[in-house]
Design a protein around this nucleic acid. Sequence first.
DNA 1: GTGAAAGCGCTAACAA
DNA 2: TTGTTAGCGCTTTCAC
Lengths: 341, 341
Amino acid sequence: MRHKPTIRDVAKKAGLSLSTVSLVLNKKGYVSELTKQKVLGIIKELDYHPQPSARGLASNLSGNIGFILTDEHFSQSEPFYTRIFLGSELEARKHNYYILLTTVGKSIKQSDGIPRFLFDNNVDGIIIAGKIGTSWIEYISKKNIPLLLIDYVAPHISSINIDNKAGADLVMQHLLRGGHTRIGFVGGDIKHPSVQERYVQYRNMLLNAGIIPHKQWESIAQANTTMVDGYEATKKIYSHNENRPTAIFAANDAMGIGCMRYLAEKGIKVPKDVAVVGFDNVEAGLHADPPLTTVNVHREEMGGLAVRRMVEMIKDKTVVVTKTVTPVELVLRESCGIGLD
Amino acid sequence: MRHKPTIRDVAKKAGLSLSTVSLVLNKKGYVSELTKQKVLGIIKELDYHPQPSARGLASNLSGNIGFILTDEHFSQSEPFYTRIFLGSELEARKHNYYILLTTVGKSIKQSDGIPRFLFDNNVDGIIIAGKIGTSWIEYISKKNIPLLLIDYVAPHISSINIDNKAGADLVMQHLLRGGHTRIGFVGGDIKHPSVQERYVQYRNMLLNAGIIPHKQWESIAQANTTMVDGYEATKKIYSHNENRPTAIFAANDAMGIGCMRYLAEKGIKVPKDVAVVGFDNVEAGLHADPPLTTVNVHREEMGGLAVRRMVEMIKDKTVVVTKTVTPVELVLRESCGIGLD
DNA sequence: GTGAAAGCGCTAACAA
DNA sequence: TTGTTAGCGCTTTCAC
């Protein structure tokens, strides 16, 4: 096997200098269209690929984007953030970036829990997906390298978020139109901005419809948003014997499934006795019994969008903070009686 | 903020040459213990971290390990391979390696589906987890860079595998001891070595116990090993009215859960009417109704082990093919009547 | 528009 | 056991 072609080989074959080839490679400066095409042709012919480390050394840019997930989020059974990562990785290829995925604990503890790329200075930007301790955000902010959050927010930090307000709006509209007036909310981890936004909009929509939200209909004290939390939260709501809701809006699908599990155990029929709606459009909802009505979230696209934003941030070096919101749509399934009778 | 310390700063402060510092850094050659400690001290004091790209350029080693997963495996709802990756990532930190995670289609198609690190030559070794098309394995083999498979096998390629034989052994022993003689097998994707090994041992154990395996007890024609496949496979077994199994060994937990779902729908009680056992010890099995007896697989450890092996392979440059098997253990839960009455 | 030359931070011969 | 030196492959001024 002959040696890997270098920029030198390309330049020689093109009868040009290294710098011209470099300019073409980086789409910088002015190169005549003719030369450019010639160089591009030879690059293809030689199957030349610039060596990341050489490039990194010369340009002081690593060509890597760090992607941080809390270990909790990463190993949770529903691949929610995993799908976001997938979208990022795919998009990164297009921009010739590598993604360095790493997981961390909720908050900073021992120094060996710190992603190596942070002190190696081996990333040009960092994306964090999901809720994470403030200590991490502060720590990374100090590094003075572009930072972007997905499905989380922090002051003065750019983020890509779900349009939770619109989602909750769709859910509530659908339920209200179906004639429901006693609508419950099953939530947990209420400090999480996504959960909070859904909850707030749930209340607003009730009020807008002239309905006073009843404390008894809601249960938002759970620490997390897992299936078990949904189960427990629903149990609490059903500990009251009167004025029970005829529909339940769960903060996410996992809780919705847990909710339905409790109802099933108690012999309460979904959707006949109570309609249930989730959020996130996770695969498990499709296999639930009955299949769970939910709000679809474009996970891959959020990840892709994040990378595109990050690439801009790296190039621009401007410090404009942007908060982007990605659209959602209602996915009707049996758990809420579809057209609601 | 002052400039990032370089090896030069360390050398100067230590009153030594660059190469001595480099030797300490790379644990190579002979350096007196005294100098070594001195250098190490200064490195810590200055908070010096060698720059990966410079190192890569000079040593012709990237410091990266590529980790390939099929997109199917990565986005499946149970984080089986995800957990393996997690183990790898954690271990990689200890060895000062970065992991470049990427997903690919089952087989090679368009050139843009090829992980960028492959033609960038940006990894020192590649780990593939899970079943993948032969075309990929052939393609990568040609690159002449260390390759290691996890939970899959190929001729002349090193691999880290689950001890499926031992696992199936434990399951069958338990069921046989419980007095079961008509034991069924619910499987799919029978070409997958893990499934196949479990199935083969299932039959062997029956034969060893003097029981002739009955075709009617098994259903292994499903293309995959998802919950739905388990459901369908069980349906087939129950299409026969006589000689039905009193226990079912499912090729994995997902299928076991699908199996139980079918049984529940038909009003067949688990474990009273039929015992069910899965494999993998996935979280969903714990939440199944009843909780699923299964075989625990050490996912994180498999990932960690893979990285350790890979680091050896990169350093040694020997071409010894090794097949490592990781241990498993039985996890007793209600779905098989625990002690089996 | 293009070329020449310097140098990014490190490793690896080789010399001492 | 330690120092000197020559690059690794690329980007980036600065000339021309």
